[in-house]
């Protein structure tokens, strides 16, 4: 018995080794690169660049872009998911598939489609980049929202109705709180990816739409690996923090229930 358990665990060994070599060690190397200068001696200089106003400007712009993208996606996706989940359309796999199909299409191809139609209309800039981001990330907001709303236990909603709650009150006190985990995973799938994407801004933007992802990409392309690594570490930290906060909120909500 014990022996068989052990032999079974060994099946994970190849992946464990690969993960250490190709996931953990590269991150350690990146961390190391961020804390040395061109000659390999220890320094904090790469991070001191955050004293630079331009870096803050780029970071601020990225957050504004990510915030707007997330809010617009949420405002458009929530009603879409709710209508899809509550109507008879829910039974028709074809209709639901129509909405999530774009998720399977290469995102650069979709950005190209946006460029083709809207570039002449809007001109390259903040508006066009925002449109491209929303177009690119919308299905990733819709999917988790639809999943949670379609699988929601309807007895809660009916109970509230029976107890005389108005549709608005029912939505605010029952449906919305129950859908929080879906909202959180949607936000996670849109917010940080917007901050770190550089292709959308490269293709639809101008120098005024330079994002944090572009900053990292620029430094790596120019061979400033130390600086690029430092920015990547900051990115990594931001992702870590947002994920922790999201997990925290989901856990607290789950605990309440």
């Amino acid at each position: 018995m014990n022996n068989s358990k052990l032999s079974k665990q060994m099946f994970a060994l190849p992946y464990a080794i690969l993960a250490v070599v190709f996931v953990i060690i590269p991150l350690v190397i990146m961390m190391f690169t961020a804390f040395v200068d061109g000659n390999g001696s220890f320094t904090f200089d790469n991070f001191l660049n955050f004293g630079n106003a331009d870096v803050w400007k780029v970071l601020g712009r990225s957050f504004i872009m990510a915030f707007l993208t997330t809010v617009i996606c949420l405002v458009l996706a929530y009603p879409t998911a709710m209508i899809l989940a509550n109507s008879r359309l829910n039974k028709s796999a074809t209709i639901v598939m129509l909405f999530v199909l774009p998720m399977w299409i290469n995102s650069l191809l979709r950005i190209y489609a946006v460029k083709l139609i809207f570039e002449d209309m809007l001109g390259r800039g903040f508006g066009l980049v925002l449109l491209g981001m929303v177009y690119d990330f919308f299905p990733f907001m819709l999917m988790p929202l639809y999943t949670i709303l379609a699988n929601m236990d309807h007895s809660y909603i009916e109970a509230a109705e029976d107890l005389g709650a108005s549709p608005l009150k029912n939505f605010l006190t029952v449906i919305l709180p129950l859908s929080v985990p879906g909202i959180i995973s949607g936000v996670l799938m849109v917010f940080m990816p917007t901050v770190s994407t550089f292709a959308v801004s490269d293709i639809l933007g101008n120098p005024d739409t330079y994002m944090f992802g572009n900053l990292i990409n620029y430094n790596m392309e120019k061979g400033y690996y130390n600086l690029g690594s430092a920015y990547s570490i900051v990115m990594l930290a931001l992702i870590g923090i947002t994920t922790l906060i999201a997990n925290r909120i989901t856990a607290v909500r789950g605990g309440k229930k």
């Binding site: 590269p26 901050v195 770190s196 990409n217 690996y225 990547s232 992702i239």
Partner: peptide
């Protein structure tokens, strides 16, 4: 050990593509 493996498994899933990409690149360099 299961928690450890599952945690490691999530690193690249949660990480930004650009950070994963750069980590790979520095490693291969």
């Amino acid at each position: 050990p299961r928690k450890l493996m599952e945690g490691t498994n999530q690193i690249t899933m949660l990480n930004a593509d650009i950070v994963t990409a750069i980590a790979f690149m520095l490693f291969f360099l």
